[in-house]
């Protein structure tokens, strides 16, 4: 007999791995620079989601914000705040870095006239 709860948990984790794999596939295999950037954001988002999932407490995780309930209840049921704090900065800094990549792609288009990496590779000088 299959335990449906274990199945769903495994499915969620594997689907996140699959999404990260799709993002990685886009970064490696797709030739267009804009598509590579989109895939890179998908990859980063999924890794962040996995980090948050690691800190989740099941059953019944509540957000790590103290709202006046009994202390034992709060410490015993809140989710792990550390991955959230790391992911929080990672999202904003990752966005700044991705915007820098977008600017570099724009400058590449101005200089080379294309964003197709196969064509850029053939250009010399």
């Amino acid at each position: 007999m299959i335990d449906i709860e274990v199945f769903i948990k495994t499915f969620i984790v594997l689907a996140l791995f699959g999404t990260a794999g799709v993002g990685l596939y886009g970064v490696i295999a797709k030739p267009h620079a804009t598509k590579k950037i989109i895939s890179l954001t998908i990859l980063g988002d999924t890794v962040n989601a996995l980090a948050i999932l690691l800190g989740y407490r099941y059953p019944g995780g509540i957000p790590p914000v103290y709202t006046g309930q009994p202390p034992n209840e709060f410490v015993g049921s809140a989710v792990d705040p550390l991955p959230q704090a790391l992911v929080l900065t990672a999202i904003v800094i990752g966005m700044a870095v991705n915007l820098l990549i977008i600017y570099i792609a724009l400058q590449t288009y101005r200089l080379y006239g294309t964003l197709d990496t196969r064509l850029i590779k053939k250009l010399r000088g």
Binding site: K9, V13, L53, G55, P64, F74, V75, P81
Partner: peptide, 15 residues
Amino acid sequence: PFFDGIRALGTFYLS
């Protein structure tokens, strides 16, 4: 651990 408890460090921060 996925879908399990949290680490001791998390408990320290929470408390």
